[in-house]
C-alpha cells in the first residue's frame, strides 16, 4: 500500500483540545534539505498520556525532541511553526532553553544514568537548578523521587553505589526518578521500554499510569500493545505527517483513517 505524502490529507480525529498543556501548530522540521515533519497540528492535554506510533522513520521521535528543543543540539536541524507551553512560545529567541528543559523533562530510549552514585544521579537536577537549600531537603527530594519511580525499596540501602551498576529496568526507573526530581510539568519519553525485558517494561508502564495523575506525558513507542495499554490518546504518524489522533480505545477498535488501520493490523510495512 504505497502512499505518497500528498495523498495523506489533513489530520483526522481529535488532534486539538480545549486548554491544552502544550499546543503545536504548523510544525515543519528539516534536516538540511530533507523535510522530516510536514505541517503538524497537535495539542497535548493536561495530565494525559499521549502516545505517538508509526513506522520507522515517520518522524515521531523527531517531533518529540522538538518539544523540549533537544533538536537544537543537532547540526543542520531546522524547526518552524509554533510550540506553546501553556500559551508561551518555547522557540521564542528570548526563551532560555535551560529552564524550559527543567519544565519539560525527557527519558531516553537507552537508559543513561550518569556515572555517579544513585544519590548523585537523582540529586543532580535539583542541585544545578538551585531547588534546595539544605542537605535534608535534598535527601527528601531524592527519597520521594525514588519512591515515585518505584525504585526506593530496591536501592534505599545502596544510594552510594554507582548508578550504572543497576539492571536495565532499574536504570531506566532511575532515569525517570532523576527527571521527576526537578518536578517538571511535562515528561517526554522516547521508546522508554524498548531496551527492557517484559517485567521491567510492565513496571515502567504501571509507573506511567501512576505518574499521569500529576504529570503530562508524551510517549513515543514502537509497540502498539504498549500504546494501547498505557495511553489516553494515540497519534499515528506516517512519513512525517500526522494522519490520525484519537481516543486510544477508538483508534484500536475502529480507526477512522485507512492508513491507521493498515498500520495497526500489520497490513503494510
Amino acid at each position: 500500500m504505497e502512499q505518497s505524502i500528498e495523498k495523506i490529507g489533513p489530520t483526522i480525529g481529535q488532534s486539538l483540545l480545549e486548554n491544552p498543556k502544550m499546543s503545536m501548530r504548523n510544525v515543519d522540521v528539516f534536516y538540511g534539505d530533507k523535510q522530516a515533519i510536514y505541517d503538524v497540528n497537535l495539542d497535548i492535554g493536561k495530565n494525559e498520556v499521549l502516545s505517538m506510533i508509526g513506522p520507522s522513520g515517520c518522524g515521531k521521535s523527531t517531533f518529540l525532541r522538538c518539544l523540549n528543543r533537544m533538536n537544537d543540539t543537532i547540526e543542520g536541524c531546522k524547526v518552524t511553526g509554533s510550540f506553546d507551553l501553556e500559551g508561551k512560545n518555547i522557540y521564542h529567541p528570548k526563551m532560555d532553553v535551560v529552564p524550559l528543559r527543567a519544565r519539560v523533562g525527557m527519558v531516553f530510549q537507552k537508559p543513561n544514568p550518569f556515572p555517579k552514585t544513585i544519590y548523585d544521579n537523582v540529586a543532580y537536577g535539583p542541585k544545578i537548578h538551585g531547588l534546595v537549600e539544605s542537605k535534608t531537603d535534598l535527601d527528601e527530594i531524592v527519597e520521594s523521587s525514588l519512591q515515585k519511580a518505584g525504585l526506593w525499596d530496591e536501592v534505599k540501602d545502596r544510594l552510594d553505589q554507582q548508578g550504572t551498576g543497576l539492571s536495565g529496568g532499574q536504570q531506566q526507573r532511575l532515569c525517570i526518578a532523576r527527571t521527576i526530581a526537578i518536578s517538571p510539568e511535562v515528561i517526554l519519553m522516547d521508546e522508554p521500554c524498548s531496551a527492557l525485558d517484559p517485567i521491567a517494561t510492565s513496571k515502567i508502564e504501571n509507573l506511567i499510569t501512576e505518574l499521569s495523575e500529576n504529570y503530562t506525558i508524551a510517549i513515543v513507542t514502537h509497540s502498539m500493545q504498549q500504546a494501547a495499554r498505557v495511553s489516553d490518546r494515540t497519534a499515528y504518524f506516517h512519513l512525517g505527517k500526522l494522519v490520525e489522533v484519537n481516543d486510544t480505545q477508538h483508534l484500536f477498535t475502529n480507526p477512522d483513517h485507512e492508513l491507521t488501520e493498515a498500520y495497526i493490523t500489520g497490513r503494510f510495512g
Binding site: Q225, F252, T253, N254, P255, E261, I264, T265
Partner: peptide
C-alpha cells in the same frame, strides 16, 4: 496475535 481493529471485529 492480539488482533486490533477489523481483525478483532
Amino acid at each position: 496475535h492480539q488482533p486490533v481493529a477489523v481483525d478483532l471485529r
